[in-house]
């Protein structure tokens, strides 16, 4: 189990739990970040933060501080070739 911000671009993982404060949690839920959802890390912004993720078919950018609150399983492997 690791947090989402440690996932590297190209890696895919599954959400185990989210431990954010209520407003953020609700927002994440609306965007598709729920238990068991698959997330792919796509790319980081040029400054390294925020990071773009593919979730439920769309691309969502999250700050690393927020991604830290999403617990995922260890990546299964690369979805995209870097």
């Amino acid at each position: 189990m690791v947090s989402l911000n440690t996932i590297n671009p190209g890696e895919k993982c599954k959400i185990i739990s989210i431990s954010a404060y209520p407003a953020l949690k609700r927002r994440l839920k609306d965007l598709g970040f729920v238990k068991n959802a698959t997330v792919t890390c796509l790319y980081k912004s040029f400054s390294g933060d925020p990071t773009a993720y593919r979730i439920k078919g769309s691309v969502i950018a999250l700050r690393n501080a927020d991604a830290k609150k999403i617990i995922v399983n260890t990546p299964e492997g690369k979805d995209y070739e870097e």
């Binding site: 407003a23 953020l24 927002r27 773009a52 769309s58 691309v59 969502i60 950018a61 999250l62």
Partner: peptide, 11 residues
């Protein structure tokens, strides 16, 4: 402090 930031990058 800055709050959360979620942004959709549409196609």
């Amino acid at each position: 402090i800055p709050s959360s930031f979620t942004l959709e990058l549409p196609p």
